[in-house]
């Protein structure tokens, strides 16, 4: 892939100035995160000292509590969140890719109206959906289950994922699909064998966002679960106490929450890179 010469890249300057800008962006992006991580290993006295202290004797006590197996362990919360976010991502990508394909490749009655209707559902502020949904799931006796969060998150993410994947599908040439159709493949086979691999950078990007939105969601998780299925953002919100914010606990949990998302983000990126290979081979 390194064979792509810089001259034929899509018109991007690549000199030392641009590298300098990347460095500035990097500092801007990372500094607050580093600050959160530093806060997680500081005692409260050090957090509030003036001028701000950068280096202090590290205090890992909060990590020991949250990552240990004791009473205050955060591991069950992390597991709940991980499971719910992963399931949501999986379901959303499957369901939305079908819908996106339909919108992208077919001309059918009401297609534009349906696309707008789909968007309109996402325009409703989630807080106004809380009461009707709560009453519904209370009636169905499904409150406080992983199922209820997965279903809600999937529905909430579908409009976004569909629109985005449609945009990516639109950018893929159809010749391959047409020849596959001539070979006798059906619609599902074409979608999963041909279109989706070609659109993999877009799908990777979409699924990272769906995952992160589900991973960080607070309101539905807080309102619809009580005992069995508390997620990690709900635990994080509890560090804002009655009289004080438990800063060290907050920063530690924030760091812990960041990690899985970071790891997944890092590994999903290989699809972003692989696509270039596919492109150049083609």
């Amino acid at each position: 892939m390194k064979s792509i010469s810089q001259n034929i890249s899509p018109g991007i300057p690549t000199n030392s100035v641009s590298k300098g800008i990347v460095m500035i962006l990097l500092v801007f992006s990372l500094l607050p995160i580093i600050w959160i991580i530093l806060t997680s290993i500081k005692s409260e006295q050090a957090i509030f000292s003036i001028p701000p202290k950068v280096f202090v004797a590290p205090d890992f006590s909060a990590y020991k509590i949250f990552l240990g197996l004791g009473n205050n362990s955060a591991i069950p919360f992390i597991w709940n969140s991980l499971f719910i976010a992963a399931m949501t991502t999986f379901l959303t990508v499957i369901v939305s890719s079908l819908a996106a394909y339909a919108f992208s490749r077919y001309r059918f009655k009401w297609s534009n109206h349906l696309l707008i209707l789909m968007l309109a559902t996402r325009l409703l502020p989630p807080v106004t959906a809380v009461v009707p949904l709560y009453l519904m799931f209370r009636y169905l006796d499904l409150l406080d289950t992983k199922f209820v969060l997965i279903i809600i998150y999937t529905a909430v993410e579908i409009p976004f994922a569909t629109w985005l994947m449609k945009a990516f599908f639109d950018g893929i040439p159809r010749e391959l699909e047409e020849s596959a159709a001539l070979d006798g493949c059906n619609a599902l086979q074409i979608i999963y064998k041909i279109t989706m691999p070609l659109a993999s950078p877009g799908i990777a990007a979409t699924s990272i966002f769906v995952f992160i939105l589900a991973w960080n969601e607070f309101m539905f998780a807080f309102m619809f679960t009580s005992i069995n299925v508390r997620t990690i953002p709900v635990r994080l919100a509890e560090t804002i106490g009655e009289m004080q914010v438990y800063w060290q606990e907050m920063a530690t949990l924030a760091t812990v929450i960041m990690l899985p998302a970071l790891i997944i983000g890092f590994f999903m990126q290989k699809y972003l890179v692989r696509a270039i290979t596919a492109g150049s081979v083609k």
């Binding site: 960080n216 914010v245 924030a254 960041m258 970071l262 983000g265």
Partner: peptide, 17 residues
Amino acid sequence: SFLLTPYMVAPIAVGLG
């Protein structure tokens, strides 16, 4: 990876940070 990190941080933690 580095440039994308901020989006991974939970909004509550972003606010507090």
